[in-house]
Design a protein around this nucleic acid. Structure first.
Lengths: 161, 161
DNA sequence: TATTGTTATACTCTATAACTATA
DNA sequence: TATAGTTATAGAGTATAACAATA
């Protein structure tokens, strides 16, 4: 692994895959976090949860948490807020009264769509330096890795989501 | 942006760049975090700080924080721990007695090297599915993005580091 | 007895600001 | 007055466990 001999210029882990992923991910993530907050959502986590429900209604909490890599108790807090804000509803699942089905309200769907549009724009700005071919290559390679050996060992925690 | 119609299988944001970056980054990050803890370091953040100092000694705290995207008060806490563990030293800079020069001890250098080796192995495991050409392509594209329009807007925060 | 979801807790991280000592 | 670093604080996030309701 190589490092810059002049640490004052550039970042010290420029060749490191993990470092690069975090730099680029954090760039995009913080921009998206700002967008989410501007729209009244708590942050990127609330946005991800809301959008996931909006894109495919009918999530039971435990399944939703598993899909997003979020602990059920952490998810409860996020859902409480979205619920209070009138963006989602939770109703008992017929046939299993322990479970609760999460669905977006009209207001929630609309908000998710607005934020998703702005987020997509931000993504395009980040990718503006790459040719269309390079963009596809990048996404393809990342998808390959995401579904690879580490696919299941990746609870997304902290401010990463 | 596309989403899976069957959310029960796969993750809901499979096509989303930010999502992919976080999934892959978190995979690698959590694996590396575990390695760092196993070696007695507090976590990946302590490791990154220690390794940065080890690779290029003579950092003043403020510059180090800036290079790593860490706030100076957050950095102080990390450095305190590394100092107590005998992994680094901090001595006054001749010519500016406000500043403190951070350097690794022999023990610190050795530890940084050991952990870095294990981390490199983990990285190779993650990349095992890609051909050598694909690996180079991926790193190249990410470097391009990392130095692109978002380069300066990316304070790495939370558990991301 | 196991599962779904909520609540409670202690711990850590974050972000801000006040503070000191130097410049 | 500005800068390097430390300390203090409040707020948020995390992880665990205990808990209630249901299966």
């Amino acid at each position: 692994m190589q490092f810059s001999a002049t640490p004052e210029q550039g970042h010290p882990f420029e060749q490191d895959l993990n470092w690069l992923l975090h730099r680029v991910g954090a760039s995009l993530g913080s921009a998206q976090d700002e967008i989410a907050r501007r729209h009244g959502l708590g942050g990127i986590r609330s946005y991800v949860v809301l959008r996931t429900i909006a894109e495919s209604n009918g999530w039971v909490q435990l399944a939703l948490g598993k899909a997003l890599g979020l602990d059920k108790s952490a998810l409860t807090i996020v859902l409480d807020r979205l619920d209070e804000a009138g963006l989602i509803t939770r109703r008992p699942v017929p046939g299993d009264r322990r479970a609760r089905l999460c669905e977006t309200t009209d207001k929630g769907s609309k908000l998710a769509r607005s934020v998703a549009e702005e987020v997509a724009e931000t993504e395009q700005q980040l990718l503006a330096d790459l040719s269309p071919g390079d963009r596809a290559t990048l996404v393809g390679l990342l998808r390959q890795l995401a579904s690879g050996p580490f696919a299941d060992s990746a609870p997304i925690s902290g401010s990463c989501i």
